[in-house]
Design a binder for these strands. Sequence first.
RNA 1: GGGCUCGUAGCUCAGCUAGGUAGAGCAUCUGGCUUUUAACCAGAUGGCCGGGGGUUCGAAUCCCCCCGAGCCCGCCA
Length: 574
Amino acid sequence: MASSENSATLLYLYFGFARTVLLISSCNSFGIETVLYFTMLFYAICPYIICGKNIKWHGFSNVHWADVAAEQLMKKGEKHVLATAITPSGPIHVGNLREVITTEAVYRALKDRGAKAELIFIADTFDPLRKVYPFLPEKYEKYVGKPLAEIPCPCGEHENYAEHFLQPFIHVMDELGIKPKIYRAYEIYKEGRYNEAIKIALDNADKIKAIIEKISGRDLPEKWMPFNVKCEKCGKLKGEIYEYDYPFAKYRCSCGYEGSVDLRKGGIGKFPWRIDWPARWKIFGVTFEAFGKDHAASGSSWDTGKEIAKQVFKYEPPMPLVYEFIHLKGKGAMHGSTGVAIAASEAIKILPSEVLRFLFMKYEPNRHIEFDTGFSLLDLIDEYDRYERIYFGMEEKIAGMKDEKRVYELSQPYGIVSKSPIKISYRHLAIVAQIAKDFDEAIEIIKRKIELKDYDETRLKERYEKIIYWLKNYAPEEIKFEVKEELPELKLKNDEKKFLIELEKNFDGIEWDAEKIHATIHESAKKSQISAKKAFQLIYMLFIGKDRGPRAGYFLQSLGKDFVMKRIREAYQS
RNA sequence: GGGCUCGUAGCUCAGCUAGGUAGAGCAUCUGGCUUUUAACCAGAUGGCCGGGGGUUCGAAUCCCCCCGAGCCCGCCA
């Protein structure tokens, strides 16, 4: 396959050559023999120029981005620590999800290459609460500035504020098959694992200050120190060090309190982000980290972080991978604080976990992703199914697909399924789910046309539940239908009236059964000489005010005979 | 002002690393299916590849300039 692509390329080269010869001979202007000679020479050596030393006859490979990153890491060594970090200051959204899904994909790619890799997740639970977010009660004002891990849980059911937002996210990671070693910054500080870094940073305060001022262009206060003490009186991370004499530091808090701390004790304060980041690289031996483009802007924390790592902590910065933000369709980038966000725990309720992974796998990290909870959601799921069929050889790859098998593999939360389940178009399922009372009835409806095995039913169950949730909370009105309480306004032509009268007459004598109803509609249409298409359109108009709808027989059956007969009468009498 | 990303069919995007006849899905339209589960099957319509220059026999692809869109650049993360 790939080598035939190569042959095709060579063919093109020679076609081009032939065209050139024709062109030149038709022009027949000057030095034609010389031109021909060089042209031929060029094309003769062209394949070698193109492929060079690395002639890859199975080449033209398009390698998945996760594999590209893994390959680069393998060149550096076979032991890696891949870090992800999120601050649980509010609901953790789909945008944050990219952080862990992207990193985990590289982690898997490394594992596939036999590397020793570790995936870690650091929850920044020691960060202070920045402000009273819209989703918080007013009384949280008094906690602003305190560490997230020391603030009460908003719902009262979790250990603290940080856990309240962290737990649902950990659950989502689990559903996605992402199982990192989880650390909480609050504990790490408390256990003293930062202590050495704190001493190094404070000893090198001037150096750090110079790096930040030079690279970010900021002006820091003259006596700036790269560490915030947690005030012993108010508990906020607002203590500024004004006198440093290891192991003690005297600080002044914004609340007015002045005190002194022993820096050898854990958890007495915290680094600002720009120092925290490089410090943690060294503490955990991080060799790879993916981060959002906000960190990557010039002069931002990546620029200062890598210098601080090298010059102060004497640590080689990890390999970076910058990812773009997730946009909510039509509303811009997701941001917890602006409210433009879909919580990760919400996304997993409307999308099967493998499809949620798929969304991140199929785009390169540097592309922004439009997350749409509307119709595109259905297309996304159907697209995933197509990848699955291709993976199992049930369908041919279509043009425009990239690394389709690898994308599919990396989308699996828990390994490749043993066989491809029967595919029901998701759009179709959305209709069936609206006709059926419950899952069992939905299965019955589907089984009328398609044979299902137990295995397929199990797979469908998850999708059914998710689509029900979606229909209830996100689906656009166009896909929903409901039976009109009143007869919609209609202008019936004579033949249409005739059809309805005929229909009523025929319905009267039959058993109220889907198949019979359906047959009767066809018969009546024939008798009154209107097309079946028109007949069905008319029926849909009568009951749901649209010219299309769910399969008529079953639909009318579920509405009940009395209701249907009454509506038909009303229609032709109007 | 600095940085990153993007601009290809109505929409969502492949194709660009390594130049060789412009692609897919969805949407739309037409036809088929004498059962319409908004299904399924077949076909069609649809693009000066953002604009301009350059390199080349040949540019969506490489180089330069411009235009437009989005995001990031105090602190915090």
